[in-house]
C-alpha cells in the first residue's frame, strides 16, 4: 500500500507546531499502525531528519501509553480500540492519514505526538485508592462480595488511563476517567469508608487540572478501549451529590 501522512510536528512544549506531509510506499496491510510509524521513522532517520516522537509501550492494548488522533478520531477509526491495536488494513491504498496528538489544556504536548498526562496521576493521588497499609489486610474471604458486584467493579477498574475520553470529549472532560476509579471503589465494600472524601477530593483535583464539564454526549464510551460505561459518570455524580448533602 501507499500511504500519505500528515503529522503534527512540534519541537517542544513552548514552540508552536505545524502539520507536515510524508509519503510511505510499500506498506504491508498487516502492519500495525505503530509499526507503520516505525517504518516512517526509519525512513526519516535515513534521510537524516528527526524521527516522529510518539507515545507507545506494550503494543498490546493494555498499558494505555499510546494514544493519538487519527483522521480526527481518538485511537483511529475503529471503536473501542487502542492505537496499537489498529492495523493498516483498516485504511485504503493511497489514503491520506492525518495524525495529531490528543489535545486538552490538561494534556500539554511535549513533542510531536507525545503528551503529558500526569494530570491523571494527580487525580488518583487525591483519593483514587483504598487507604490500607501493607500488612493491615484482613483474611481475603472475610469480606464476601457478590460476583455481579465484583464484575461491575472490574468493568470500571479496567480503565487503562490512555486519555482517549478526554481527547474525544468536546469539553475535554475527564469525567469518565475519574468516575471509573470512583465507581470501582464505591462498588466494593472495602471502598465505602472513604467514599465521601474520595469523591470530593477527586472531583476537586479533576477541576484543578483544568478539565471541562461533562455534558453526557457519551462519545467517551464509544472511543474507550475498555468500553467503560458512561453510567459510571452518573454514579460519580450520585456519590458526589450524596457526599455534598451529607457533608458535616
Amino acid at each position: 500500500m501507499r500511504i500519505r501522512l500528515k503529522i503534527w510536528r512540534q519541537e517542544n512544549e513552548h514552540e508552536p507546531g505545524k502539520m507536515m506531509s510524508y509519503t510511505l510506499e510499500d506498506i504491508n496491510p498487516h502492519m500495525s499502525f505503530l509499526e507503520m510509524l516505525d517504518t516512517l521513522n526509519e525512513q526519516l532517520l535515513k534521510d537524516g531528519t528527526r524521527p516522529v516522537e510518539f507515545d507507545h509501550d506494550c503494543r498490546e492494548g493494555i498499558c494505555g501509553q499510546c494514544g493519538i488522533m487519527i483522521n480526527g478520531r481518538a485511537h483511529g477509526p475503529l471503536k473501542n480500540t487502542t492505537t496499537c491495536q489498529l492495523h493498516m488494513r483498516t485504511f485504503t491504498d493511497n489514503e491520506e492519514i492525518i495524525i495529531e496528538p490528543f489535545r486538552a489544556s490538561a494534556f500539554p504536548v511535549k513533542c510531536d505526538l507525545k503528551i503529558d498526562r500526569s494530570a491523571f496521576d494527580r487525580v488518583i493521588q487525591s483519593g483514587g485508592f483504598i487507604a490500607v497499609n501493607t500488612g493491615q489486610a484482613p483474611e481475603a474471604n472475610s469480606i464476601p462480595i457478590g460476583s455481579p458486584e465484583v464484575e461491575a467493579a472490574f468493568d470500571a477498574a479496567a480503565c487503562i488511563g490512555c486519555g482517549a475520553c478526554v481527547a474525544v470529549c468536546k469539553n475535554s472532560s475527564a469525567a469518565l476517567f475519574t468516575s471509573a476509579k470512583i465507581a470501582h471503589l464505591a462498588l466494593l465494600p472495602q471502598g465505602q469508608i472513604e467514599a465521601q472524601t474520595r469523591v470530593r477530593n477527586m472531583v476537586n483535583q479533576m477541576d484543578k487540572e483544568g478539565f471541562g464539564h461533562c455534558s453526557n454526549t457519551e462519545a467517551c464510551e464509544v472511543e474507550c478501549p475498555q468500553q467503560i460505561s458512561v453510567l459510571h459518570i452518573a454514579r460519580m455524580n450520585y456519590e458526589y451529590n450524596k457526599a455534598q448533602i451529607l457533608k458535616k
Partner: peptide, 27 residues
C-alpha cells in the same frame, strides 16, 4: 460552563471527525 469548556482545550484539532462518536444535538 461554555467558557470553562473552551478554556479546557485552547488549541483546536486540525482535522476533527469526533462527531462520529456522539449525537449532533448532544454536542
Amino acid at each position: 460552563i461554555t467558557v470553562a469548556n473552551n478554556r479546557a482545550r485552547k488549541i483546536r484539532y486540525h482535522y476533527d471527525r469526533r462527531g462520529a462518536a456522539s449525537k449532533w444535538y448532544s454536542r
